[in-house]
Design a protein around this nucleic acid. Structure first.
Length: 576
DNA sequence: GCCGTTTTCGGCCCGACTGTTTTCAGTCG
């Protein structure tokens, strides 16, 4: 049951959209599939179970009669007739061609009809032989550009973890502030929305009429190539392949432009539609009434006010129900870094950490933590020098001893015990029972089937000494995909047993992700936000976790380590 | 293909930049 994942269904629709686009279909029809794919990706409920329960999928936004039928078809048969037909009709290489920047459906058709180009290799050949420049709508320049894009396709395709982009973003902001005439310089885009990864950086500058912002921008030392450069907009590629888009606007338009440039696109479009319904035009320069007079836009709040909404935090602007929530005054009071009172996941040199107990404790106290759980690996994880039962108990004695001399910080005795392939825990119950808390985690057999992986975690949660599942999907951004899991079953079981789930704040994990966090909140499952620090410096990972938690609509009340240790201890499963 | 407090048909966000054009189409965000 529920073997079909929402993401799979979304991928089917996205694929149909691509193929329809290549065929030159009505762009609005293409968009309908894309909109539906988005809705499904963001849906906090499993569509397969909705189908099984006979619920009306047509009630979902962007899902009409036709797409509801297609969802049912996919859930029950495991494939879509429409997609099979399209895949027969469109050569497989065309999809890659659509990803080449500068190639859209129209020019793609010309290439195919005039030169018979059906894949990247054929395009490269034709461009090298100078055949592309002879086509209508193409010229020498576009031919050269296409060749350059083909060269870079691999590098440009990757998304950058937010934390990796952060260093560049910080330097770029500082650089742009030195530009003549620059007044205000801000990050926008998915970076401002604090997404776990960013495809590019978007920067917004307000400046005086006579300014040198564009010149300063393209002179940034890490700029490798200028893609475009106009009076108000420019795009460059940095030497690591990261694209940066810059927009310069007058001060009176800053709020409208910041809103527009922050996105998400789906959120923006929805806001603009709300404006249209009120007889207003909303663009990056402001909110305009029917006479064309600007009535708002110097700051974001004034724009939202024109469509009768309060200001919406950027982390929520994903068209995941934030507009409806805002309209009824029901936006969450998002968790903040200062709400966290301690950290429940850290490693020392005793397993695979870089700093010893005392160093970690000092750093935690400097961060203002009331408590820090020491959670070494268990014996099964040899590569991380996991501890045997005896070694763990000895380590606990060391923690007790250090606690005697600590002022204002309490070290907790924990463990990150391996969840073995069959769901058993890697240490005996009588050892786990002697700890303050126990994390369990998957560090092997990531590739199990969805059913077996789910059962593995369910069985692990059968153990009453397991308080928290750490990094539940075991994903590593850009390196390892999330394990296949029936997250709804996991959440249901966690709710019943009182097991909490971790939002691991390592910048490459951020696991649970934003959507899973939101699902946990709606299921009434407690979350802990943990640094998983392997050094004193990494204790500060928590800020990445806070970002992800905010994207998941979490409030302080949803997160266990916003509690004092006494209150938190009472909430741990072992003490209930 | 979706959607509806002017509509069940005829709309569907809006503007900048580029290159190939002699006034605009295509692409992108």
């Amino acid at each position: 049951m529920n073997e079909v994942d929402n993401q799979e269904i979304a991928a089917q629709f996205e694929r149909i959209a691509e193929l329809l686009e290549i065929q030159g279909e009505n762009p609005f029809r293409v968009r309908a599939y894309r909109n539906a794919a988005r809705t499904i990706q963001n849906l906090p409920r499993n569509l397969a179970s909705m189908v099984a329960a006979g619920e009306r999928l047509e009630e979902l936004p962007t899902i009409g009669k036709d797409l509801a039928a297609k969802i049912r078809e996919f859930v029950t048969t495991g494939s879509l007739r429409k997609l099979r037909e399209l895949e027969r009709a469109v050569p497989p290489g065309m999809r890659e061609l659509l990803k080449v920047p500068g190639l859209g459906p129209k020019r793609l058709r010309v290439l195919r009809d005039e030169l018979g180009i059906r894949d990247l290799a054929a395009l490269e050949r034709a461009a090298r032989e100078g055949r592309v420049r002879q086509l209508p709508g193409f010229g020498e320049k576009s031919e050269r550009k296409l060749l350059a894009e083909l060269n870079e396709l691999q590098r440009r395709a990757r998304r950058f973890p937010w934390a990796e982009a952060e260093a560049l973003a910080t330097r770029l902001l500082a650089h742009l502030k030195t530009a003549r005439g620059a007044r205000r310089v801000e990050m926008a885009g998915s970076y401002r929305r604090l997404r776990d990864t960013v495809g590019d950086l978007d920067i917004l500058v307000s400046a005086t009429r006579d300014n040198a912002v564009m010149e300063t921008f393209v002179a940034f030392e890490r700029v490798e190539r200028v893609l475009s450069k106009g009076r108000t907009r420019a795009s460059v590629v940095l030497d690591n392949g990261l694209q940066v888009d810059l927009r310069v606007v007058p001060r009176a338009s800053f709020g409208a432009a910041w809103h527009y440039f922050t996105g998400s696109k789906a959120h923006n479009i929805a806001v603009r539609v709300m404006g249209v319904r009120r007889g207003l035009k909303i663009n990056e320069y402001g909110v305009f009434d029917q006479s064309g007079r600007r009535i708002a836009g110097s700051d974001e709040s004034s724009l939202y006010a024109q469509v009768d909404l309060p200001w919406i935090p950027p982390e929520l602007r994903e068209k995941r129900g934030e507009l409806e929530a805002a309209a009824r005054g029901g936006l969450p009071r998002l968790i903040e870094r200062a709400d966290l009172r301690g950290d429940l996941h850290a490693h020392t040199t005793r397993s695979d950490g870089e700093d010893d107990l005392a160093t970690l404790a000092r750093a935690a106290r400097a961060l203002g933590h009331e408590y820090l759980a020491i959670t070494e690996h268990s014996q099964h994880l040899r590569i991380a020098q996991g501890l045997s039962a005896d070694a763990l108990l000895a380590h606990c004695d060391a923690i007790d001893a250090l606690n005697q001399n600590l002022d204002g910080l309490r070290l907790l005795k924990g463990v990150e015990v391996d969840i073995l392939e069959d769901g058993a825990l890697d240490l005996p119950d009588e050892v786990l029972a002697r700890l303050d808390l126990c994390l369990g985690a998957i560090h092997s057999a990531f590739g199990l089937s969805r059913r077996r992986q789910t059962e593995r975690l369910l069985r692990a949660m059968d153990n009453r000494w397991l308080d928290i599942i750490a990094h539940p999907t075991a994903r590593l951004l850009g390196k390892r995909p999330a394990c296949e899991l029936d997250i709804e079953r996991i959440l249901e079981s966690a709710r019943q047993s009182g097991c909490a789930l971790e939002l691991n704040a390592q910048p490459l994990r951020l696991d649970l992700d934003d959507i899973h966090c939101r699902m946990a909140r709606e299921h009434g499952v407690a979350i802990v936000i943990s640094s998983d620090a392997h050094s004193a410096r990494q204790l500060d990972n928590l800020r990445y976790g806070i970002a992800q938690a905010r994207r998941g609509w979490l409030e302080a009340g949803d997160v266990l380590n916003c509690l004092s240790w006494d209150a938190l201890r009472a909430r741990l499963r072992r003490n209930r």
